[in-house]
Design a protein around this nucleic acid. Structure first.
Lengths: 329, 329
DNA sequence: CTGTTAGCGCATTCAT
DNA sequence: ATGAATGCGCTAACAG
């Protein structure tokens, strides 16, 4: 690989001048500039990013840490984030925490060692110790899909999403309600809140706990649902709100396996609006997150932080969810 | 962040010695070693990877370039590759080529500038100019999911997979055959080969071309399938082999929308065995790729190349596909 | 506007 | 076994 020194020698200027034309920082004569650029092209020069990072302390690297990159929802986030980052001259270092807080800690450490300029992170667990670590580090960081005090966050309003699901089910004349998923989730709070506000009695609400994890829960969700449907003799239209599409699919599977009808017997609403909602049958009604907007807002906010163009004060963006009606309700 | 200089000062040794104990290269007295390590711990020292990369020309960075990271199949690949890379002290820089050969070219360029030690790549297109570029570069590179002459490749045997699909459909008593997908694919060749070998006449085989792309083809696949099912009055059991699960789902959707029965009227086989095969109804029979093994083999092979532990001669690993029978056949 | 100089943090060779 | 010295390729003052 050609270096700036090579360019400088060929062009008959100093290496500093080459650096100047490449960074456009200081002023350079148009003549020498084009002359240098000519050699940059001829030698197909590419600045060595390691050297640049060392000298300028700007690695143009962003760390992306997610709990479950196999989940299509996060895959979409990765897609949009990477796209915008690349457009802004940043590369993405991706790591999967697998929902493991210890692994998450190691990853953060290694990313810092790599001199990433910022971190985009979806925490492994809503009680991860890393949350506090990020709070007290100077490294710019933006949290995605969750919100925490004193952190820059970009997420959909899960509480509001829960409310929307509840209201929709009520509107459909549902008599019995089921929430399937992680109980430590604002969408659960929102769901309950809307239900209570509408005078639904607690007896009418069942909770299927999937625990504080969001990966590889399909089998558990299926068994969970199977048990519920089997043990609760059907008496009236039942509404199910699942904390993500994957678990909603599992519920559908279980209900159909026990020969229930959807949506006649069970109205099911998922969350995330992943592309599979349109692929399965019945197609799944889901609360959509504006994934592209989340990705865009998160990376833009992070870039602004990196450029120190922001107030010290952290801020959260709460994006509105949207109900997408399909065959399952 | 503490530097080696800080450690050296605190421990009362030279910076070179600190470097030695950290890299375990040259011999150091156990006493000074533990003494230095003590300070490494106390100051929570993390070597600056930019500096290390610059000095040693080892970035411990691997570039991963894929055409469609939203496809669950590739998401799985990412998952396994990242896991093993991290275990070996490497970080992954991920980029999505979006099936765009120009973007792919830019990405490769930027990864080289980043001093990645190796490249793991699934080409955007089977005729991408980057294929030749990779052939003639000294940067270690391993191609995944496809095979090309004079390149290190790890992939499933697509030809063999096509044969398996054909044989299975024949065994099921299918009279009419459909291939849906990219025609420039060895699984298509294998499919035709097995069909011809069994004396199936060309008239009995229909091809639904999805073009030389493998992303965002769902709608096209659906329309494609809809047209076929509508225009071909049903006379006998029809077997469909789709080049990936996503397009198989689309075909199922179209067939069901036209009130065909699966598998009575249409037997459908997908490719990749993504997790959704078990989630949709009917569950999808699919040719499985050993994704974990592909990821493992690819990254291990790449690491071996990086360590120059390999013959100059490039080699390809062709892994065997496996038929997973489900409800759609 | 441009050249000279001094690091950035680390690996590594050459002394000792 | 360890310290001193050098350089990786680039950025960023500082001169001129």
């Amino acid at each position: 690989m050609a270096t700036m020194k090579d360019i400088a020698e060929q062009a008959g200027v100093s290496q500093a001048t080459v650096s100047r034309v490449l960074n456009g920082s200081s002023s350079v004569t148009p003549a020498t500039k084009s002359h240098v650029m000519e050699w940059v092209r001829r030698l197909d020069f590419q600045p060595n990013q390691s050297a640049r990072a060392l000298a300028s302390k700007k690695s143009s690297l962003i760390g992306l840490i997610l709990p479950d990159i196999q989940n299509p929802y996060f895959a979409d986030i990765i897609y949009h984030v990477e796209k915008i980052a690349l457009f802004n001259g940043f590369n993405i270092i991706l790591s999967n925490s697998d929902g493991d807080v210890n692994k998450e800690k190691e990853i953060i450490k290694s990313m810092k060692a790599r001199q990433v300029e910022g971190l985009l992170i979806g925490f492994a667990d809503s009680h991860s110790p890393s949350i506090n670590e990020i709070r007290h580090t100077e490294l710019p960081a933006v949290v995605i899909t969750q919100t925490y005090e004193d952190l820059d966050c970009v997420a959909v309003n899960h509480f509001c999403g829960g409310e929307m699901a509840a209201k929709e089910l009520i509107k459909l004349g549902v008599q019995r309600f089921v929430y399937q998923g992680n109980l430590d989730d604002e969408k659960y709070d929102g769901f309950l809140h809307a239900l209570h506000n509408s005078g639904i009695h607690k007896d009418k609400i069942t909770t299927l706990d999937l625990g504080n994890v969001w990966y590889h829960t399909q089998l558990r969700a299926y068994n969970n649902a199977l048990k519920f449907v089997r043990e609760n003799p059907f008496d009236s239209k039942t509404g199910v709100f699942a904390y993500n599409d994957l678990s909603a699919f599992s519920f559908i599977h279980a209900a159909l396996d026990l020969e229930k009808r959807i949506p006649e017997d069970y109205s099911i609403i998922g969350f995330d609006d992943t592309f599979m909602c349109q692929i399965i049958r019945p197609t799944l009604t889901s609360i959509a997150q504006p994934k592209e907007e989340i990705g865009r807002a998160a990376i833009n906010h992070l870039l602004a932080r990196i450029d120190k163009k922001l107030d010290i004060k952290k801020e959260s963006y709460l994006l509105p969810p949207r109900l997408i009606k399909r065959e399952s309700t």
